[in-house]
Amino acid sequence: MSTFMIRLFMGAMALFLAAPLAVVAGVSVNERKSLSFPPQGFSLEWYAQIFTDPGWRGALVNSFGVAVGASLLSVIVAFPLAWFLWRYHAPWARIVQILGLAPFILPPVITALGFLSFWSMAGFYGQPWTVVISHGIFFVTLPLVTLTLGFEAVDDSLVEAAATMGADDRTILRTVIFPLIVPYIISGLAFAFVLSLNEYIVAYMAVGFTVETLPIKIFNSLRYGYTPTMASVTVVFVVLAVLVFGLIARFGDLPRLLGAWRDDDGDR
């Protein structure tokens, strides 16, 4: 494979991935309410609409509220689990680990339907807070994976040194381990946050008829035709995702987080 062929192929894939986003970015600045590309005129009104139109602003606030709550909850559930799996030797704990990984591997519609039947049977169907718990559990996989990597990266000799000096488990956790895995907590939070913001089916089945998040609002509007605000929201979401993952890459080790081992990882 020559360098030219590699560039051509990777360029073609970049084009494929960017094309729908580019067109959406184009139609989002149309002056009139029509779906046309190349855009006719230039206007940022549809971006302002996200904040000025009560319906869209409400959906934005809902989405952010759910995403903040759900990402915090997922980390709160994942942290003690990842710590336990790292600290103690207990084969049955693997079952809990598998439960933490399952929601992400199974088709999402299954988890969504499970929550729908659960919340309606418990009598809380449609309560706004149910979607926070649903997303918090649905996305627990992400902080679980990043935190497991984080604990594995902790240098054993540091822990031993602290133990020799007489620190108990909790002191070691607080003074030695916690500072080392803060980056992994943050990336777990960030992954869960971005995915919760974008998630549709679980949110829809849990609270679809009472709370409108942005993806639900866009889907509902799509059924009645096109509004340019959908395009501007899409662009905002893409920019937000690039920003969040870009920050993780800037302050963390993204290739390692995604499973690459570098040559200088001496212990492998």
Binding site: N198, I201, P215, A231, A241
Partner: peptide, 12 residues
Amino acid sequence: VLSLSEVLIGFG
């Protein structure tokens, strides 16, 4: 791209 909602991919 992976984190994009199916709603947004479908719309795009």
